[in-house]
Amino acid sequence: MEHAVDVLPTTDESAATASAGPPTTRVTLDVNGSEHPLDIDNRMSLLDALREKLALTGSKKGCDHGQCGACTVLIDGRRANSCLTLAVSAEGSAITTVEGLADDEGLHPVQQAFLDRDAYQCGYCTPGQICSAIGMLREARAGWPSHATHDVALDGVVLDDDEVRERMSGNLCRCGAYVNIVPAVLDAAEGSAMRDAADSHAAHAPDVPDASVTRGTTAPDTTAATR
């Protein structure tokens, strides 16, 4: 029997595997201001944990490879792809999903802007678009340049159609609702959108100093963000 051990597990090993199952880790996830103690299979993405363990199905699984942005959530106030984040590694971070954006006073201004501008068609990418837009507006307020910024050495951000398209290019919309998403994001940038519901949930405030965001001209343009 000695040479068979290389191929087949012993009875003891089989029993151990059966009782242990795949390696798991006990973590506490802070989601939308609530603490959730969970036993997580080490392989589980944050997206799957949100959807399957916490029944927060707002965050969507599009590609599951970080290419579409439908899974975008805010981690410590910053936008991130939850499909490429291991749930076990998210312990200690404040996670905000689309379900955590509205408060007693109403919808988050970005949510409201998407409604006002009809910035969706089927809606599948919308939760990711909204979370991404909130993170993006914070980045712009902090003065972060983008690939569309002419001189990266200059301080200050002027958001216009090109800037919004570039900064939102991590969120694909198969319906092609970009033509309404861009104005919605610009509305939110301009209006009362400087309020940030997600901040109230974040344990660590995003390291975003206050800087002004100016809105540029918004000439009508039907080009998609990923042209």
């Binding site: 975008t72 690939h147 990266v152």
Partner: peptide, 23 residues
């Protein structure tokens, strides 16, 4: 980075998406 080595800032900004650059 943006003032001393703009090529580096531009290279980074041309890469991936806002979400992925945060990660």
């Amino acid at each position: 980075v943006r003032t001393r080595f703009p090529l580096l800032a531009k290279a980074l900004l041309s890469a991936a998406s806002g979400q992925l650059r945060n990660m």
